[in-house]
């Protein structure tokens, strides 16, 4: 099953709708609650990143038999130094983002913590692509 969501930068009112939809879909499939939590936390952090930093973006979630793949593509300022952005506590978030409770520099580390596979590439001035895979079963 494939889901596609359009995300608007700065829209904190709708930010989280995609993650919420995926959470419901996974619950209906009786996926292990701990795995659901890892998936939705990784996806929600990625979704918030698009809302917080980008002009707009697209999230594609593919639920397969043994894994969930998430492709997060945004058009925005990009990440200048990915290694630095992956370190806990580093953030370039605006005051508006911080007022919403984010921007403490834990977004990418939280994705990495929950993902089985996390690949990210970014071009400064163009945008960022992230690919996250979380396995549904341990075997």
């Amino acid at each position: 099953m494939e889901y596609v969501f359009e995300i608007n930068g700065g829209d904190f009112s709708s930010g989280g709708n995609a993650s919420s939809t995926i959470k419901r879909a996974l619950k209906e499939r009786n996926v292990d609650p701990l795995v659901i939590k890892r998936i939705v936390v990784a996806l929600f952090e990625a979704e918030i990143n698009v809302v917080a930093h980008a002009d707009h973006g697209t999230i594609t979630v593919i639920i397969e038999e043994h894994q969930v793949q998430m492709f997060v593509k945004d058009f925005g300022p990009g990440i200048e130094d990915i290694e630095l952005a992956m370190s806990e506590g580093y953030s370039t978030a605006s005051d508006t983002v911080r007022e919403m409770g984010f921007g403490a520099g834990m977004g990418l580390p939280n994705i990495k913590k929950n993902a089985d596979v996390f690949e990210i590439e970014s071009v400064k001035g163009l945008g960022t692509n992230a690919h996250i895979i979380i396995y549904l079963k341990n075997d």
Binding site: G15, G16, L34, K37, E45, G101, F102, A104, M106, K113
Partner: peptide, 24 residues
């Protein structure tokens, strides 16, 4: 008040005490 810190919690039966009051 930091939501990414809340997202690191893995234990159920937990309540959140916060001064952050918005939809997020």
């Amino acid at each position: 008040d930091l939501m990414s810190d809340v997202l690191r919690l893995m234990r159920d039966n937990t309540m959140l005490i916060t001064g952050l009051c918005n939809v997020q």
